[in-house]
């Protein structure tokens, strides 16, 4: 038997394309806007969310039969928040430079609605292993969009990728800049992230007409 049954594989691959958390489920937009001005930040955030989603989903799934429905939101939030805070404190104690990089993301992770959304929609009703896969799948789907948006915004906005000047140096006018190319600083502003995501949706739905919305 394969490691993952067909049904389980779908849990991971679906969110990457046809059930993407950002472009289809409309979850986790705020963080996608806030951090995609830089490719590096997009990658760091994606990795952090993969961890939190995977483990958070397992914890909630293990507790699903004992959580009283009336206070489930509080319980879910407290689980995420304490997971994130504990990890943050441990990093601060043993990997200080890394924690400085992640520090800005702590708040964004706690309020990332993807995490809460999947807790509500999946982990509360499914077994731990499947919840784990669902968490990883959705986090990957989220990460893919983040990295695409981050790639274009950093490339077109600052002319760099991961901090390296791939298009030449804008001040001494080398590379592309020598023939009159200019960076579009507008790409670095948050509204452009919305427009880039809009364009991604356009491409995605043109390729798969089944996703097109009725009016």
């Amino acid at each position: 038997m394969a490691l993952l049954s067909k049904k389980d594989t779908k849990l991971i691959t679906d969110p990457l394309t046809d059930n993407n958390p950002i472009t289809i489920q409309v979850l986790g937009i705020c963080s996608a806007l806030a951090i995609t001005a830089e490719l590096k930040a997009s990658i760091v955030m994606s990795i952090a969310v993969i961890f939190v989603m995977g483990f958070g989903n397992v914890v909630i799934s293990l507790m699903r039969n004992v959580i009283p429905s009336k206070i489930r939101i509080i319980v879910q939030l407290i689980v995420v928040a304490s997971l994130v805070i504990i990890v943050d404190q441990v990093l601060k104690a043993f990997a200080y430079p890394l924690s400085k990089t992640l520090g800005a993301f702590v708040g964004l992770i706690i309020t990332n609605c993807i995490i809460m959304g999947r807790f509500e929609a999946f982990a509360l009703a499914n077994k731990p292993w499947r919840s784990f896969l669902d968490g990883i799948g959705n986090a990957l789907g989220y990460g893919v969009i983040l990295i695409i948006v981050g790639f274009f915004r950093e490339l077109l906005g600052a002319g760099t990728l991961l901090g390296y000047q791939v298009l030449g140096d804008p001040i001494t006018k080398t590379g592309l800049y020598a023939i009159g190319y200019e960076n579009n600083g507008f790409m670095l502003l948050s509204p452009m992230a919305l427009i880039v995501v809009g364009l991604i949706i356009w491409v995605q739905r043109s390729r798969n007409p089944a996703l097109v919305e009725e009016n």
């Binding site: 509204p191 427009i195 356009w202 739905r205």
Partner: peptide
Amino acid sequence: VPPALRGLGITFIITGLMGIGFL
């Protein structure tokens, strides 16, 4: 609106434009 942009896609783009206005 182009079919593939209908609904969510165009909403993203309109919000982006409104955001630029609010700047």
